[in-house]
Amino acid sequence: MSDWSIFRDDLIEQMPLILGGLGKTLELTAIISLTGFLLGIVVFYLSLSPSRFVRSIIRGYISFFIGMPLIVLLFLIYYGMPQWGISLSPFTVAVLGFTFNVAAYNAAYLTTAHNGLDPVEAEAARAQGFNRLQIFKLITLPQVLRLSIPALTNQVICNLKDSSVAFLIQYTEFFARMQEVAATNFQFFKAYFFSALVYLALVSLIVLASRALERRYILPT
């Protein structure tokens, strides 16, 4: 199994680059999970607007970004926008593209959870004299977020996995570095198998965190 020792030596030699890539993967995943979460809440809030105009804009936003392949969106911003004089760094493009996309998905999850709520609680809050934003913050959102923990953490897993797409716009994350390892020794199976194990390990961590979060916030029945 001398193949394995060659692969191991290359892996160790390139470890600083691989770890750097892993750091960039985690950085991108963490940032888009947070920005996508926050923008998702804003989009969800606007989707409850009394104004029909605002609601239709939001419906359009969600349909557009769920309907558009992420890779097309990233290429459009990274390779297309410079023709209009707007050049952004790979990192900026990745954060922008992912955030719009992830927010649309998150808003859709929150809407689904909201459809399952009993509207009488919001009516009771209105009858108590709370305004729209207070009802959203104090009644609607805490309930909707609890119900959406599985869907929202699932989205974080998707974010981690999809972040590998960012190498196509020159963002040198973990998967890009592993491709370089594969290219130096042509041990494709080993390189990509190793990549798969790393992604699986990270996803397992997210799943564990998600379960802990659910246990922490579950309402007694």
């Binding site: 809050a125 004299g129 009644i139 309402l219």
Partner: peptide, 20 residues
Amino acid sequence: IRALRQSIGFVFQQFALYRH
């Protein structure tokens, strides 16, 4: 209206307690 509502207590058929 919100001041008006604050001076009227409202008890609902389905209780409408905040479940969280």
